[in-house]
Amino acid sequence: MIEVDRLEKSYGFARALKGISFSVSKGEVIGFLGPNGAGKSTTMKILTGYLSPSGGSGSVNGLDVVKDSLAVRALIGYLPESTPLYTDMRVDDYLSFCAEIRGVPARDRKAALARAFRLCGLERVTGKNIVELSKGYKQRVGLAQAIVHEPPVLILDEPTSGLDPNQIVEVRKLIERLGEEHTVVLSTHYLQEVEKSCSRVIIVNHGEIVADGTQEQLLAKQPGGGLRVRVRGPEAAVLTQLKELLVDVPVEVVDRNDDGNDDGNDYRIAGDGDQAPMAEAIARTVINNGWDLLSLQRETPDLEDVFRKLTLSQAEAANV
């Protein structure tokens, strides 16, 4: 459905996209993740024809986004970042304008509007001026605008940014519903959003794709599942003992909890697989030495770990 091949974009000397490639099949819901300035919006703007690429190519349904821009744009429903709207218009007038300019024939327009209103839960505000609406409702108007012509592809740039938690849940449900009929590419900062509503995740950083796969695939790549143990006792001695016990397994102090109380240190023990025997051995060592074992838990990696690991540089990571 969407093919992106070595897409590049430079703004002056700054290279916003350094040749990214990915493809999206029909019916997928893709979560585009990345820190600010990673190139998410730029990619979306190129696919929707707002910007032209500096190199590489993109296509939707086999149509080139540059050469067949008009045809591609007709296939897409787009919600730009920060949801621009003609705020002086009424909700129904605005939606009618969007439907008309996208070529929804007059006889189908009423039904198209009704469908968009229903899907986005806008029935109660159709006669209001957009400027009077709350942020959540404005966001829904933006989404309604993107789906009113029933496009096969939806491109949503941060559809939930700036919303309160309740609104986020609502918009997320809406996107899930839309995902049943449309191919969706959405960008977001909220990892939960991706975990809940996306079938695949693409993580971009500094204009490059650093990960592309289902959540399970990404989590499987993340080393983790290590142990985290909190011990009250002399740091040097604990470290030496643990290292003696666990030959060749990296042990490090991850948190000294030095807030005045003697809450002990957090040690992280790398490794994966079945760690029950290791946990047992560690517990015994700590107790035998007369130190206090305050907690011992298994670390389970989540998407956030994957994201942070892939998008933070070494220097930044050290400061976290």
Partner: peptide, 13 residues
């Protein structure tokens, strides 16, 4: 308003 981004991504010359 940012609406230029809508205007220029509608299927319109």
């Amino acid at each position: 308003l940012g609406t230029i981004e809508l205007l220029l991504t509608f299927p319109v010359r």
